[in-house]
Design a protein around this nucleic acid. Sequence first.
DNA 1: GCAAGGTC
Length: 629
Amino acid sequence: MRVLCVAEKPAIAKAVAFILGGGRVSTRETKVGWIKNYDFEFNFPQFGSCQVTMTAVTGHITTIDFPENYGWGKCEHSSLFDAPVLTKYTDKNSMNIAKNITDEASRSNILMIWTDCDREGEYIGYEIMEQAKKKNPSINMETTQRAHFSHLERSHVIRAACNTTKLDQKAIDAVLTRMELDLRTGSSFTRLLTDLFRRTFRYDNVVSYGGCQFPTLGFVVDRYKRIKNFVPEDFWYLNLAFKKKNDKAKGTTPATWTRGHLFDRFAALCIYQNCIEMDGNEATVVSLDTKPTSNWAPLPLTTVEMQKDCARFFKFSAKQTLTIAEKLYNSGFISYPRTETDRFPKNMDLKKLIQLQTQSHTWGQYAQMLLNDGTKFRQPREGSHDDKAHPPIHPVIFTSGESLNANERKLYEYVVRRFLGCCSRDATGLRTSLTLKWGTETFTTSGLVVKELNYLEVYVYNSWESSKSKIPEVQAGDKVALTSAQLSTGKTSPPSPLTEPELIALMDINGIGTDATIAEHIEKIIERSYVTKEDQGRGKSKSKVLIPTELGYALAEGFSQIGFDSMSLTKPFLRRNLEVKLKAICEGSIHREQVLHEIGSMYREAFALTSRSSRLLADSYRTVTASNA
DNA sequence: GCAAGGTC
């Protein structure tokens, strides 16, 4: 028997081939430089001893598009909702990748799919099957084998090879649905908007709509509007500072009002005067509690967390972070950088990975200490996300970094420190909370004493320090002397403009884009001139913030004026709804035709309304540009 | 000249 195995990316093909082949693997070149065919023998319990060829694709081989006669300018925009769609190769390389599969499959008895175990992976498996069956009539949905694996630990991979199933038609249907809806809605609205802005304003660039682009823009505009419409309000609050009675030592301890602040000056004044009359410059200790507290070690690293952290710590853009991480992955230094999983597989050998890091001059000692002192290592906390395709991001081999540039070194070091931090115990401390009563009011203050740094010794990006002001040694019932008791005033301040890590978090929570695409959507709305990145603050607190342009603002405002009922194109609701429906397709509770019909007709209506109300969009742009002129 | 999703 001859078996053809196909993975989603070359690195997986290579790793799986060497595991299954037990090291006895011969390598053949293909027409596409980065893809190799690996030949070896393996004894599958299902098929007996087999000649195996393992190869790979690089993601999707094909994409969908409209036929020639539905090109831009050749048809009514609205006809794209019913136009036929055809499948085509994504590019020249994918044609050769497809040919490699067709050729290899023609000489094989069995096709075995080793793509990632997620929705897109299932669909890529289907694409591979479509190429494989071209010259091998025995290959079809029934005969194609599907291996399930989520990481490259040896026994896990062998188990996957021995326990194959069929491809999951439901997951394939879900992806088909997503692709078709994205194509129809994206193309129709993009052509409508672009033509409108060209006609009306001689605006020469593309004005695109995308189910992910618009909600992303919406988040930026939302924040901008909250700032623009912000009206500061005055507030009043009481604050105290106190010391132990007869305490000769210098220094006092501040305490804050449990009511926070009041917006009514008169009420605050009454309370203040009342307290002075009742208790003067003396307050009573209600309680004093000291409890152990801890500062948790980080969770195993996901793509989104890495992007948020690198924006905060190193001021990298999300795109930049992913690009650098890919480079480190392709050089073999870190594991696959696109993952949603924040829990390590149970049987993964973490100590082996820590061992590799003991060579470092900077964190090597810490790594060694984790291994030597049995009380210091701990199995990492488990987050609640598992994409079933990739483990959390972790260092794979040690490098002292001389082959890396400055940014690559920073990211590698971060991945290592994060990993070592994950495998470390939480930091511990003692939190003392003191409650005071002054007149009718209560005030609190708390202090922290850090006991053990643990993970913080290696995860230097977080800080957790003992409080500067000490809590005096008093007991419940004691009277303390107030060194000041003031009625103070302040103003509420506007929210600050959206930063990239905040935007990433919003997209992540609302299901806009994926670990692999969030950064691209942000780049895209910048490229389209819907938003710009601007510097804010200076020195250490310097950061980049996202501000809508006139165009971006006008689009969001215009669309909200059109007033679709129950849905707005610039809100995340629609995309989230689509995700819910796709999941339902995967679970078999709804059919793909029904989702296409339901969501398709929603968009069709929204399109018709937008088409009729396109004057509102134009007016919105005119208003914004005029008011800023 | 259009989308979003994979990956190099």
